[in-house]
Design a binder for these strands. Structure first.
Lengths: 209, 209
DNA sequence: GATACTATTACTCATTTGTATAACTATCAA
DNA sequence: TTGATAGTTATACAAATGAGTAATAGTATC
């Protein structure tokens, strides 16, 4: 008398991994990083716990992979505009700000994921490294945009000055993003985008952005 | 033949509670919120697990209390300047920014604590409420300062405009604070303070702050 | 349609964790 | 000194957790 096995479907490696990562994200969003247990992840992904281990050697490696996907997804959603090159530098900058401060980049779940992972910055070396990289990448995007805008408006600044502006602009956008993610209902539509654009404009000392 | 009991000292309620809260902070800093187990907290506080329960009904209530202490400590460290009233509004603002962007307010452990707690914003109702309150308080401090500066410089702006500026200034300082906490070694001494002051000045459209 | 491969399930195990409760003792007041 | 109080320890327990292993069955290939 053998108990029947749960029927299953064999999925491709890529699909399974991304399913498991998505499930991990759901866990974290629902109950914080502590709620992301192997069993819950497996449950949400409609799979048994053993399979999680088959794809991810460790819990840490599952979390790291999830962090990586989370960040690169956001980056991708916030910066594809930069490739569009027939726009003016100012227009690009505006779009960049707008993308960063509206959905899907700016939404509660993204903050929860980001906060959960970065809170482990001193505990999980992999996350330390990935965070540093993501931060510098984003800041560099700001720096490139600022430089282009200055070229366009015919102004000249030394690199040191520009780096400082990039740090400030980055901080401003990050700050607005956090405020917006955490309390969507506290702001009117596009209020944060407009604030972001006008503040960046002021920081850079431009008449118009 | 009875095994000897561990000797102990009876502490006042206030002292014990604050010890336990400090121990909770240490746990979180070392290994994230998941590392804050009752046993580890008790261990660090030099106490047995049972005592934790004696002072905190729940793990949630321990975490909530720790969050409250964490936030009010930071707020207190960042805003005592506001009481000093014989300073000019601009000077107050500068001090406010400086306090926010230097130790002890700006230091890695504070970010870790803050991120750990806010990552639970959707999971623990107590934290939701306390966060919202802390955020609005800090933003209000910004708003008051901005208003005073404008009075001092003889400019007049409607409330809506001022609220917007407060949101932006708040975001900027938060963003710089996060960057500084997460990567102290990436910035030179006072670099962030100077960036903060000059950026706020620009956002507010002032010639000098 | 039979075979081989491996993705997937099922099960196990030692630890950890939150919570609960009873026993003990430091401390203070009389 | 004595007794009472409550802060503190010791111990227990069920549930959850990360990790490991063997058996099974989808599925592609021939």
């Amino acid at each position: 008398m053998t108990t029947p096995r749960r029927p299953f479907r064999r999925a491709g490696e890529e699909e399974r991994r991304s399913d498991l990562i998505a499930a991990t994200q759901e866990c974290i969003i629902e109950g914080g990083i502590g709620a992301a247990t192997i069993r819950k992840v497996a449950d949400i992904a409609g799979v048994t716990p053993g399979l999680v281990r088959y794809y991810f050697a460790d819990k840490v490696s599952l979390l790291s992979a999830t962090y990586l996907v989370t960040m690169s997804t956001m980056t991708q959603q916030a910066t594809p505009i930069l490739i569009d090159s027939d726009l003016s530098a100012c227009a690009k900058f505006r779009l960049f700000i707008q993308a960063s401060l509206t959905a899907p980049v700016m939404q509660p779940r993204n903050y929860q994921l980001w906060a959960s992972f970065t809170s482990l910055i001193n505990s999980i070396p992999e996350i330390t490294v990935m965070h540093r990289q993501a931060y510098l990448e984003y800041r560099n995007s700001c720096e490139v945009l600022i430089r282009e805008v200055f070229v366009e408006t015919g102004r000249d600044l030394d690199d040191r000055k520009i780096k400082g502006l990039a740090i400030a602009v980055n901080a401003l956008i990050d700050g607005l993003w956090i405020e917006g993610c955490m309390a969507v209902e506290l702001f009117e539509d596009d209020e944060l985008v407009e604030l972001g654009v006008s503040s960046v404009q002021q920081i850079l000392g431009l008449k118009e952005l």
